[in-house]
């Protein structure tokens, strides 16, 4: 227990990094996922093919492999650089990997949401002469996004847990910090583990409650 109190600043910083990773990748995944969903329902077969291929490839690849590819492949070999600081650079590379992976799941959730919009809505939009982009932007997506708030919340919770995989390329988020503390305090493994477990629950439980509340509030009444 003493170890947890002594190391509190380290643990706080680690979870702050986990939160930043989640927010940055969550935002990028939402944008990329929405674009992918639009591609998958678009009138152009070539866009649909690209979207489908992306989702099928990414969903069947282990996240660890994606992160390792971003860190070692993009970072070390191809010299993709976001910052002169090595740790910041790996942070951004892991954000790219997490967003690219999560975007595939966001895309599928939004596509399922588009499915909940009654056909009459899209037909009426076409009847008043809206183009595909106007139809999607003004009629279909606003309703679809409101119906997938709860699924997006589940994806966000999965993302919070998935940020731990950034440890594969040495990003010092919560799980890697826990491992470091295990090594430093071999006699306090159990309290450290439960401390980190509770901290994760503190992140995920309110997120779940918030999104359940949001999904009820934003639900489209039909």
């Amino acid at each position: 227990m003493q170890a947890l109190i002594d190391e509190f600043p380290v643990i706080r910083d680690a979870f702050w990094l986990t939160i930043r990773l989640t927010l940055a990748s969550g935002f990028m995944a939402l944008v990329l996922g929405t674009i992918l969903a639009a591609m998958r329902v678009s009138p152009l077969p070539v866009l649909r093919t690209i979207g489908t291929a992306y989702v099928n490839i990414v969903r069947n690849t282990p996240l660890t492999l994606v992160i390792v590819f971003c860190g070692l492949g993009l970072g070390l070999v191809l010299d993709v650089s976001f910052s002169t600081s090595l740790s910041t650079n790996y942070l951004w590379l892991s954000i790219i990997g997490l967003s690219a992976y999560t975007a595939a799941f966001v895309c599928e959730a939004i596509r399922a949401g588009i499915n909940t919009v009654p056909v009459g809505q899209a037909e009426a939009a076409r009847a008043i002469g809206l183009t595909f982009m106007q139809n999607l932007r003004l009629i279909v997506l606003p309703q679809a996004l409101r119906s997938v708030v709860a699924p997006l919340g589940s994806i966000l919770i999965a993302l919070i847990k998935n940020t731990t995989v950034a440890a594969a390329i040495g990003v010092g988020e919560a799980s890697l910090t826990m491992k470091t503390l295990f090594e430093a305090h071999g006699d306090a493994v159990v309290p450290i583990f439960f401390g980190f477990a509770v901290a994760f629950l503190v992140l995920t439980l309110p997120t779940g409650l918030l999104f359940t509340w949001l999904s009820k509030r934003l639900a489209v009444i039909r």
């Binding site: 596509r111 499915n115 009654p118 997938v148």
Partner: peptide
């Protein structure tokens, strides 16, 4: 996540 597969939805 809840499968909102409403029959006659808009998606592909």
């Amino acid at each position: 996540v809840a499968a909102p597969g409403a029959p006659g939805g808009v998606a592909a």
